[in-house]
Write a protein that binds this DNA or RNA. Sequence first.
DNA 1: CCTTGTTGACGTAACGTTAATTCAAAATAG
DNA 2: CTATTTTGAATTAACGTTACGTCAACAAGG
Lengths: 334, 334
Amino acid sequence: MATQRDVARAAGVSLAVVSAVVNGTSHTRMKESTRTRVLQAMQQLGYQPNQTARSLRLNQTDMIAMILNKLDNPVYGPLRHGVYEAAAEHGATVLLGDAETMRSGSQFLTRLLSQGTVDGILIRGEGLLDDDVMTELSSHPKPILILEHALDHPWIDVDDRRAGEIATRFLVNLRHRHIVFVGGSGYLSQQRYLGYQQAMDAAGLTPAPHLATGFGEQAGADGLRQAMQAATAPTAIVVNNIMSAVGVLAAARDLGITIPDQLSVVGIHDVDLMRHLRPAVTAVRMPMYQLGRAGVEALYDLIAGRPSAGGVITDPEPELVVRDSATALTRIRD
Amino acid sequence: MATQRDVARAAGVSLAVVSAVVNGTSHTRMKESTRTRVLQAMQQLGYQPNQTARSLRLNQTDMIAMILNKLDNPVYGPLRHGVYEAAAEHGATVLLGDAETMRSGSQFLTRLLSQGTVDGILIRGEGLLDDDVMTELSSHPKPILILEHALDHPWIDVDDRRAGEIATRFLVNLRHRHIVFVGGSGYLSQQRYLGYQQAMDAAGLTPAPHLATGFGEQAGADGLRQAMQAATAPTAIVVNNIMSAVGVLAAARDLGITIPDQLSVVGIHDVDLMRHLRPAVTAVRMPMYQLGRAGVEALYDLIAGRPSAGGVITDPEPELVVRDSATALTRIRD
DNA sequence: CCTTGTTGACGTAACGTTAATTCAAAATAG
DNA sequence: CTATTTTGAATTAACGTTACGTCAACAAGG
């Protein structure tokens, strides 16, 4: 690996000039002819700057970490995309971490944060950040931005409450009266339930209690079973988590309930998979790509010592994607 | 951030001793009492070694990259797990990259490889490595290991041919005679088709041509439609890609074909989702976790300059997970 | 008592950058 | 023609580690 010293020797100039050519520094000036001579030498020797040496000198690694709790959840696809793109615009690489590596005792975050491996960290907080972890995080020098959701840390969210409201209002407009909310535990689910409540209230309907069965396919199946045991069975449900929707569909099949004829289903978070299930699932698309971009920008605000522009992303708004799993109620039952 | 110099000052020893305590170097010896004094100083100052400085000095970053082509394909879950675990055992962090960042022109790999950001790279090759990329990669100094599949680079694979054979033989044993293989393009699909052929031949059946429609849900749907247009419709299909299986199920529903009564389906690669579809999909589980572990070990062989122990992973073998999407053919049609 | 070996440490030169400082030569001003 | 400014560059001190070489003090052996 050729170094700046080699280039300097080959071009017959000093180290400083090479560095100036590489960085476009204005402090050290040079003739255009010298510049091209250096450039040629770089080309010939195949010079590549050593990122490690740069990092040491500048105390900045041009790398940020993103920690997610279940990396293969497809909702993270667009989020990752947004983060990668925005990071690239800042000249940074993204170190993707799974929450499994993140238990309080683990060395992973400590290495990242204290050992100067990354310039900052994005964490998707849901179900991840207990008090232990939070205090450990707070004691580190590098900035941390929480994606959905933190109380006393800089954070940035998508509008989960609104998503719950949109899903519910859609079902209300389809003349459903008995709508239940199948959710999980945690803040996000709570927010979406709040939106559900709001839409129910606005329609003069009484919200059913929050059926908190957790996340994922099994949770969806459990939720549906519980919902169906109620005195008056619901004609529609709002499913908190998109992977839970898969479980809802499966449980419905197992219970002999046809969707959407006997039960309408709307999911929150839209992923490609929903298009390919049968029935194709009507879902609320969340601006996850924008969340990723905004997260990186806010993190770089923090890194630069600027006040962070956190908050709830309202542009674009959550958007309903209508497919086949929800239909108008024709037979009114009450 | 406290440095070794601060610790040395606090403990009243030289830099060399602190470094020796940190690394357990045997060259520089010290009294046990000195060691504990240094340790205490480290504790008090909250000393954390600076990874960047270490990297520069040692010319090794303790970081490896893994590049995948579609990061949210759930088949990568166990692969990632294996890679993370094995990497952790080597004291390394994993930098996860998506292939989108990898087009020939992109700076991503160049930065990683030439700028000394990582010690080595694992790449899942399928559909990714055209000749351009390969020659670009070869010109770099850090070792590269290809997961499924390369010709002139160190590589390591799971037994795709065997998976095709296992899936097909299972259907043959269920008395199916008209079995088609819905595949994609590329080496992996080809290998699995070879296994299909082999099982068909062994049963004295004539293999159908390889229906190569690509990857993902849409490909599965397309494949099924094509298969059903044949003169004699198949009673069973082997689906190359697990996400394609979702598409097959959807297309079957759309075409009014019930699975498994009218059509048996076996997928290659098992993911959790398959359990939760209806019907639950019978699939061949591939040892992806082991592929990840073995990949890291082979990469570290390369990094250490040892001959790499690549090849096909045969332990464990691909394993059939029987669920509901395939059933015995009762009405023999020919 | 001198020699040799061992213990316990210290000094320092890298690793490849960046940027502050310095400085000679050329250009311009008075 | 001298004084001053500008141009074009060179020297060098960090950044935080690691590991090589050195060395004093003490112990053991002859």
